[in-house]
Amino acid sequence: MGLLDIAFIVDDDPIHQFGMKILLERIKFSNEVLIYQNGQEAMDALTQLIENGKKLPSVIFLDLNMPIKDGWGFLDDFVEIPHQNREKVVIYVVSSSINPSDQEKAKNYAVVSNYIVKPINKGQLTKVLDDLGLIDAV
């Protein structure tokens, strides 16, 4: 049993998808890990869940640089979702960009909890659980 119910990975890089999935499973991050190739796919999935009255993911790991709809586009759409539906959703930006202006920009979104620079490792994901107050259970 995972500590959380659902986690989203939004990233177009298959290697990153693969690595994230392994790491999340190892620390039993969540019961379910759903992978989306870009912001549009993730947005569509969220809309679907809301329409069906289902539970939204607890954490979204969001890449910035993606085709069709990038991370920023996703964030802009996400804040349009009615507050009561998304208040428990936590978003982490996971990007290889070390450009300070990207980190600065991410801070401007209240829904973004933190900015993680790739490569991601087990320690960083454990810290996410810690931030959520779930670490004792590990």
Partner: peptide, 21 residues
């Protein structure tokens, strides 16, 4: 400059992660 920092970095990050595994 952005390409160098971003695109090369993303490959490097992947390599680091994979070799860790």
């Amino acid at each position: 400059a952005h390409i160098v920092s971003h695109n090369l970095r993303s490959h490097a990050a992947n390599l680091t992660m994979i070799s860790d595994f």
